[in-house]
Amino acid sequence: MPNIIACFKWVVDEAYIRRGSSGQLDFSTVDYKISNYDRNAIEEAARLRDALGGSAVGVTVGAPEATKGIKDALSRGTDTAYFVADPSFSTLDPGQTAAVLADVIRNKIQQYDLIICGEGTSDFYTQQVGPRLAENLGIPCISFVQKISVEGQQLTAERKVEDGIEVVSVTLPAVVTVLPEINIPKIPGVKDTLMASKKPSVTVKKDELSPVPEARIQAISLEAAKLERNCEKFTADAADITRFVASLRKAGVVG
C-alpha cells in the first residue's frame, strides 16, 4: 500500500491584490489559500489513498503564519501534515524550496512511494519545484498529468503535451505534477474540519534541517502589471450600441 505525499504551498489569493497608486502591488486586503493546483494534488493523494489504502501525507514549506494551510490540508483529506516553518521560508526560490522538501521527505517522512505536486503555484508559477524535487531525490518525474492509476509499484499516467496526450509508465517512487483537469477538489465541510482538528501534524524547524542552499535567483523588483486601457463605458440603449459599433469600426477592428 503506497505512502503518498502531497506537497502544497500557502499563498496569497491573487484575486485580492490591488494596484497601488505608485504602481506597486497592494497586498493590504489580501487573503490566503492553498495554491489552486496544489488542492488538486491533495485531492489526488486522498483519492488514491482511499482506493489503494496506505497513507496520504501533506507537506508544506513556509512562514509560521502558514499554519492555517496545515488545517486546510488536513480537512481536505490528508492523514497527517508536515509543516516546515521558518520566518525566512516565505521568500525561498524554487531551488531552495525543492531542497528543503527533499530534506524533509528523505529524513523526516522517510517512507514514500508517490509524491504529488501541483504543476505550478498560483503566486509565482515557476513550475520548477516538482521536477527539481525529483532530481534532488534522484527519482523520476512525470509533469503535467491529468490522470493517474497505480498498480503495485507501477504507476501509469496521462501527461498532456502540446500535440496531445502521452500515456506513460514508471516504477515508483516517483514525483508527479498534476493539472487542474485531474479532479475536482472537494470543498471541506464542517465534519471534515472537525476531523482535521483531531489529525496529527508535525512541525519541523529550520535547525532540524540540513543548511538551506544559497538562493539561485535574486529578485530585483516586483511591480503591478500595467493593463492601461481607455475604459470607455456604454449602456445597452440603442444609441449606445450604435456608438459602440462605431468605435470598433473607427479602431479598424471591424469591417
Binding site: 491573487e14 508559477y125 511591480e223 503591478a224
Partner: peptide, 18 residues
C-alpha cells in the same frame, strides 16, 4: 536581467540568476 509575470499576471517580477 529577466522579467516574468507573477500572481496570475497581476505583477511583473524582475529577476536575475546568481
Amino acid at each position: 536581467i529577466m522579467e516574468r509575470l507573477a500572481y496570475g499576471g497581476a505583477g511583473i517580477q524582475k529577476i536575475t540568476c546568481t
